[in-house]
């Protein structure tokens, strides 16, 4: 048994009076694709954001690749280079071309030479199938293309883990497929992935494990088979019922 790449112990997170995460323990193994599902406002996104300290936990400990993220004097920026993140609304840097968006991490955070960073960025854009859009600005790209550039931007840092925070929720239905394809490809390449999504088709097909979160707790976890066809908890059943109604069987 190798050590888990992410380890979360007794995580709590409050915003003022409001407790969003009420005690979560979780381990993610290297190469695992973990899908987190659940109603909105139940702490799924916050859980992801705690892993790279975009939100700082109120209580509990988190380790990423052996380093304790929650230790008092952690170098946050160093840990973030190991954790790529993809957002619901892409957040590409609007004043930069696709190429510059992908280059800026390696060149400014890792201090990579310009030419090398350029090569790397082109390679990553190729990987998401967008090399021909290298010179385009975000405003000139479709939503699906933007999200693929955002994935390339995260990959350029050679992260150990990728966090996906509802990566297809802001996309028109016909653009979702191209983003999911890139994510499936990453999964096949054994990237460790934590994915918050409502795409049940993706969850069934790609994930190794699914977590159902509600109201700040992990209610149930298990393999896709188990969770979709044989859920233990009534709330899981209800949620999956609603989601299937909304998004269809293949999500």
């Amino acid at each position: 048994m190798t050590k888990p790449i992410i380890q979360i112990k007794g995580l709590h997170k409050s915003y003022g009076e409001l407790e969003v995460i009420k005690g979560v323990d979780l381990e993610v193994d290297k190469g695992e694709v973990l899908v987190i599902i659940g109603p909105s406002g139940t702490g799924k996104s916050t859980l992801l954001r705690c892993v790279n300290l975009l939100s700082s936990p109120s209580k509990g400990q988190i380790w990423v690749d052996g380093d304790e993220v929650t230790a008092p004097h952690t170098d946050i920026n160093k840990i973030r280079t190991k954790v790529g993140m993809v957002f619901q609304d892409f957040n590409l840097f609007t004043h930069m071309t696709a190429l510059d968006n992908v280059m800026i991490g390696p060149s400014k955070v890792k201090g990579m030479a310009k030419e090398e960073a350029r090569e790397l960025a082109l390679f990553e854009l190729e990987r998401v199938g967008l090399i021909e859009k290298a010179a385009a600005y975000p405003g000139q790209l479709s939503g699906g293309q933007k999200q693929r550039v955002a994935i390339a931007r995260a990959l350029a840092m050679s992260p150990k883990v990728m966090l996906f925070d509802e990566p297809t929720s802001a996309l028109d239905p016909e653009l979702i497929g191209e983003v999911l394809e890139v994510m499936k490809k990453l999964a096949r390449e054994h990237m460790t992935m934590l994915v918050v999504t409502h795409e049940m088709g993706f969850a069934k097909e790609v994930s190794n494990r699914i977590i159902f979160m509600e109201d700040g707790y992990i209610i149930e976890e298990g393999s896709p088979q188990q969770l979709f066809y044989n859920p233990r908890e009534q709330r899981t059943k209800e949620f999956l019922g609603k989601i299937t109604e909304l998004y269809g069987e293949e999500g």
Binding site: N52, L54, N77, K78, R80, T81, V83, M85, F87, N91, L92, F93, T94, I104, G105, K108, V109, A150, R153, A154, M157
Partner: peptide, 10 residues
Amino acid sequence: QMIAARALGL
């Protein structure tokens, strides 16, 4: 924009 920049490690 700021969140994405910080998430990259800037």
